[in-house]
Simulated scan of single mutants.
Amino acid sequence: MAEPGWTPPLRDELQGIEPYGAPQLDVPVALNVNENPYAPSPGCVADIAAAVATAATTLNRYPDREFTPLREALAAYLTREAGVAVTPDQVWAANGSNEVMLQLLQAFGGPGRTAVSFAPTYSMYPEYARDSVTGWVAGRRREDFSFDLDHAAALIGEHRPSVVLLPSPNNPTGTALPPEVVAPLATMLREHGGGVLVVDEAYAEFRRTGVPSALELLADHPNLVVTRTMSKAFALAGGRLGYLAASPAITDALRVVRLPYHLSSVTQAAALAALGHAEELLGAVAELRRGRDELVRYLREAGYDVAESDANFVLFGRFADRHAVWQGLLDRGVLIRETGPDGWLRVSVGTPAEMDAFVTALEAVRDAIGDNGLVSEQQGAHR
């Protein structure tokens, strides 16, 4: 038992830090964490249950450390989805893309090294850097959230980062990187110290027709890493399976920092079974794309400023007091996310019934607050 007055010897940079996490509240409509609102079908659930039951018969043994069948299935899926050849030795997986990212920073970051991203960007990136004792530098995006390649080149030249993290589509804005950005960035990094470019495609399956994946550039850039997840498109957020595609040299390096047997037999079995239902699960993605586009149209017609989105969420504003709008929605049973640049809110795309509830609540909040709640003179930059 600890002595009275004793406190744990927490690292100095962690003192007073609140743990990451979106609010988990019991509300009728939860649209705050970009989940897929469509649960797996009964057939998919049955196959997952059967696969897990089989895995349970060997739980007295450690899992396949190399998770070879899962890597083969993920490589086959990426090859079909992106139209480029991805081999199993190019694939790595972990417990959600969060662990994939942390392993990348553990392998290629560390004391005396720097990671870079461009704000607004995913709020966990600086935490991965902090947890791996990696320096953190945040550049900026343009006012319309597009990527400024000249600014990026200057920042890379100044800091010579060992890792650059770029979500595409970006979280929280939903904007995708243009194809002409990725290749020059990968080349710049090789020329300025050999850093790794990580393109985080957690929402890639939701991108609009004609928006390419960075997977198409893997063969030409050995320092390029493309990360994906089964949490979103595959409706497997509770399964915690993220993965990446990269050169075999990069996947080999991650073996050095991974914890022993980091992917459980249950996780491997569930993910393999879900991949067997890829066509069915991606059918729900098409419905969510349509819902996103309808939501963007509605918000713009209602006078809101809306960021272009290739994800399953939409960033909209701008509000003089976004917290009042967030709270007003919550009071009406709808939970969205208060994140991103000041004055903006992010809403996930849900089922048609959930989106109707969101629209009804938003209109009620607007009636209560009035148009003065909108920063109207700033409207139009993202339309």
Results as ranks from 00 to 15, higher is better:
Arg366Val: 04
Thr351Asp: 02
Gly317Met: 08
Phe316Ala: 12
Thr351Arg: 01
Pro9Leu: 10
Gln268Lys: 03
Ala50Cys: 05
Ala153Pro: 01
Val91Lys: 09
Tyr298Gly: 04
Thr229Arg: 01
Trp326Ser: 14
Ala82Leu: 04
Ile156His: 08
Pro172Glu: 08
Ala186Gln: 03
Asn170Cys: 15
Ala75Gly: 10
Ala249Met: 07
Asp12Thr: 14
Thr79Glu: 07
Pro23Ala: 13
Gly350Ile: 03
Pro352Ser: 09
Ala51Ser: 10
Gly16Arg: 04
Leu10Gly: 06
Val375Asn: 14
Ala284Phe: 13
Thr339Phe: 07
Ala204Pro: 04
Arg160Pro: 02
Asp131His: 09
Leu74Ala: 09
Pro9Ile: 07
Tyr38Leu: 14
Leu254Ala: 11
His159Gly: 06
Pro120His: 04
Val334Trp: 00
Arg71Ser: 09
His277Ala: 09
Ala186Glu: 05
Ala75Lys: 02
Val199Met: 08
Gly96Asn: 08
Val84Thr: 13
Val359Phe: 03
Gly110Thr: 02
Thr175His: 09
Phe313Ala: 08
Thr134Pro: 00
Ala249Tyr: 03
Leu217Thr: 07
Ser376His: 10
Leu59Lys: 09
Glu354Gln: 15
Met1Thr: 13
Asp356Tyr: 02
Arg289Asp: 00
Ser117Cys: 15
Asp12Gln: 15
His159Asp: 08
His221Lys: 05
Val256Ile: 12
Thr68Asn: 11
Leu272Pro: 06
Glu301Trp: 03
Asp150Ala: 15
Val91Ile: 15
Gly303Ala: 06
Glu66Cys: 06
Gly193Gln: 09
Arg255Pro: 05
